[in-house]
Computed example of a mutant assay.
Amino acid sequence: MGSKNKLKRFKENETFDNVIQPTREEVTNNFPLKGNWHTFFKNENPIVLELGCGKGEYTIALAEKNPDKNFIGIDIKGARFWRGAKTALENEMNNVGFIRTQIELIDLIFAENEVDEIWITFPDPQIKYKRTKHRLTNSDFLKKYHHILKEGGVVNLKTDSEFMHGYTLGLLHGEGHEVLHANHDVYKDYYSPEEVTGTQTFYEKQYLEQGKPITYIKFKLKY
C-alpha cells in the first residue's frame, strides 16, 4: 500500500464515527469509555473483541451473524481496518466499532468484567524466544484478558502457526486453564464451530491455498 493511500485512509478514519483513535496518553489517563462502552453502542448487549483484527473481515462477519452482540476490532494499523470500518458504515451496522491502539493497553480501555468474548485471529507467533513477551497468548496477556472478561467469558485463538497453537496449549494446561475445544485442522474436524469455519480472512485464504492447516483453541481462563 502506497504512503499516499495510507494517509488517505488515516484521514478518512478520522471521519468515521465507528473508529476510535486515542493517544497513548488518553488511554493511560482514565480513558472515558472504560466501563462505559454501552454509551458508544447505545445498548447493553454483550461485547466481543477481535485482537489484531487486520482488515476487519472477522469482526464484520461475526457482527453480521450476531446482531444482538457488539463487536470491536483492535489493531495498531488503522490503514488496514479502514476497510472493515467503511464496510460497517456502508451496511449501517451499528454493532461494530474499531480501535487503533496497542493490544497491551487493553486493560486500560476496558473495565473489569466488561467483555464477554475475545477472538485472536492469525496473530504473529513471535517465534524467537526474545519475542515471547509479544505473543498474544503469553501469561501477561492472559492475565489482562482475564481481568476484562466476565465470569465464564471465553477466548478463541485461530492460527495457521503450529508453533503458536502448541505454545498456547502447553501454557493453558500448565497454568490450569480450561480448554473447551482444540484441533489442528478446523476444516477436517466435524466438530469445528461454524463461526470458525464459516468465515475466512484475507490471510487465511492465502494460507489455505498454500496447504497450511488452520488450528483453533477455545478456552476459559482461571486464576
Rank of each mutant, 00 (worst) to 15 (best):
Y191L: 06
E117Q: 14
Y187D: 05
F163D: 13
V154W: 14
L169D: 06
T215C: 15
G152P: 15
E162G: 07
Y167M: 12
N156E: 09
Y216Q: 04
F141M: 14
G170N: 00
L171R: 09
L208R: 13
K133E: 10
H173P: 04
L157F: 09
I127T: 12
K133A: 09
D185S: 11
K212L: 11
E178Y: 08
H184Q: 14
E204L: 05
S139M: 09
E194G: 09
K212A: 10
Q210N: 14
H184M: 12
P125Q: 14
K205Y: 12
H181K: 04
Y216V: 05
H177K: 04
P213M: 10
Y191T: 11
Y187K: 02
I127H: 13
K158F: 00
D140C: 02
F141N: 09
H146I: 03
D124F: 00
K150T: 05
D124T: 00
R131L: 15
D160K: 02
E178R: 11
H184E: 15
R131V: 07
W119C: 07
H165I: 00
L172R: 00
G211L: 01
E151K: 14
G153D: 11
K150C: 10
T121D: 13
A182Q: 12
A182Y: 09
T137D: 02
A182L: 03
F122S: 10
D124I: 00
Y190F: 13
F202K: 15
I127Q: 08
W119D: 12
I120R: 00
H134Y: 11
Y216H: 13
Y191M: 04
I217M: 06
V196A: 14
V186A: 09
T121M: 14
E175T: 06
K143R: 10
G198Y: 03
W119P: 07
H147K: 15
N183W: 05
I148R: 08
Y187G: 06
G153N: 08
L171H: 08
Q206W: 08
H184G: 15
P125V: 14
N156K: 10
